[in-house]
Structure formats: C-alpha cells, structure tokens
C-alpha cells in the first residue's frame, strides 16, 4: 500500500512532515476563524433580524448602519481584504503574517457572509411564532433565545455548513501572508514547482474535509427537523 502511494505521490512522500503540518495549519485557521466568525456572525445576524422594519426591537438606524457595513465588507475581494486589514491585524494579533496573521482577515471575510446566512435563516421562521410567544408574555431576549435560535436550528446549521466550506476556500488564499495551510502547500509545490501529485493530494484532503463538514451538517439538520 505504502509502496503504491509513494509511487503515485512521490513528491508528497518526500516531504510528508510538511504535508501533515499544512493540514494542521488549515485546521488551526478553520478552527479559530470559524468559531470566532460563528459567534460574531450569529450576533450580527440576530441584530439585523430584530432591528429591521417589523422586527421585535425595530431600530432602523442600527439596522441601516449594520446593513451597509456588511455590504461594504462583502464587496471587497478577500485577497484585497487580506492586505487591507493588515494594520488592524497587527493591532489584534501582534503580527500580520503566519497563521495568527490570517485569522483576523479570515474573520472579516467570513462574518459578513455568515451574518447574511443567519439573517436568511431567521427570516424563514413563521412570524406567527413570535406573535404566539409575545402573547405568552415572552420578551425580546426570550424570543431570541427560546424561539428564533431554537426554531431556526436547521437553517442556521445549513448556513454554517455553507460558510465553513467557503471558509476552507479562503484559507487557501491566506497562504499569501505566509499562513501556510493546504492551499499554500499546493501552490508552492504543486503549481510553482510543477509537482502535480502534491496538488492532487491536497485536493483529496480538501474534498474529504468538505464532505465531512457537509455530512455532519446534514446529519444535524436531519436530527433537528421535525
């Protein structure tokens, strides 16, 4: 088996530790920027939902400002954002290069997209449920936590799955600031040195990763849809 693999992926096998390290780097970037984006994105998505016209704590000013900021960041290509937020990255992470340097731009690239996913997921809920909750004496916080976040779990999980998969795409670009990761590994060896088997190996790992995320997401959705 090992012989077969090393004959198909000769260049990967010659730098196996680097290959594994790049996988770990991808996981680190995904883990950190994913969990930070998840929390911030859900908060922003909720704020969008409850402050918009007809929302449970309607506040047009807050909504408009947030809405415009999200649009602004969504329209910036990630590779430009990466360089654009460097000063802020230095301020927060202490460095603008490496894995730590990639997390801040990854969060900036992911949060606006994810906030929209959450907004969409929450908007799909039957507004009658809010009315029912209000008629039972629930306040805004109770409606957010016991109605929105509970009833919309399938939609939120779907949005999270989509966002996580697109985040994997973004981590490949983070190689540009020396963050490493599978994408960077594939470009450096597979593309620049024409070691095509490195590209294939990286792609196989990424495909596996995306499939696993999608499977987990679908399983959670299935379990929470009644």
């Amino acid at each position: 088996m090992q012989e077969f693999l090393s004959s198909v992926f000769p260049n990967v096998f010659s730098k196996l530790p680097d290959f594994f390290e790049s996988i770990v780097e991808t996981f680190i970037m995904l883990g950190w920027s994913g969990s930070i984006s998840f929390v911030i994105g859900i908060i922003l998505g909720i704020i969008l939902t409850v402050t918009k016209k007809g929302g449970i704590i309607q506040n047009i000013a807050v909504f408009q400002v947030l809405d415009k900021i999200i649009n602004f960041f969504r329209s910036i290509p990630f590779i430009i954002l990466l360089a654009g937020v460097m000063p802020l990255t230095r301020l927060i992470s202490g460095t603008a290069i490496g894995v730590e340097g990639a997390i801040v731009p990854l969060v900036f690239g992911t949060v606006p997209f994810f906030a929209r996913q959450i907004e969409t997921a929450l908007a799909e809920m039957n507004p009658g449920l809010i009315e029912a909750a209000q008629s039972m004496g629930s306040g805004p916080l109770e409606i957010i936590f016991r109605v929105y976040l509970r009833e919309c779990i399938p939609g939120i999980v779907r949005g999270t799955t989509i966002t996580a998969i697109s985040l994997i795409g973004l981590t490949a670009m983070a190689g540009a600031v020396g963050a490493g990761g599978l994408g960077d590994f594939a470009i450096r060896f597979g593309y620049q040195r024409n070691q095509i088997d490195v590209t294939y190996a990286s792609v196989i790992v990424l495909v596996a990763l995306v499939s696993i995320i999608q499977m987990i997401g679908s399983a959670i959705v299935r379990k929470n849809s009644h």
Binding site: N126, G128, E131, S135, G137, G139, V147, R150, I153, H226
Partner: peptide, 25 residues
C-alpha cells in the same frame, strides 16, 4: 410599561388560525 405588560399577558391566552406551535418542540 413593557415589563408589567408581559406579566399581564400571561393572564390572557391566545390561539390562532395557523396554530403557531413550535415545530422543534
């Protein structure tokens, strides 16, 4: 005020044409 109103609403039940039950519960 809002808080007193919420308490008072607990003494007024309401049912709807579309039932409005929580599907996840």
């Amino acid at each position: 005020d809002e808080k007193e109103l919420r308490e008072e609403r607990k003494k007024i039940g309401m049912i709807f044409q579309q039932f409005n039950l929580f599907a996840s519960r």
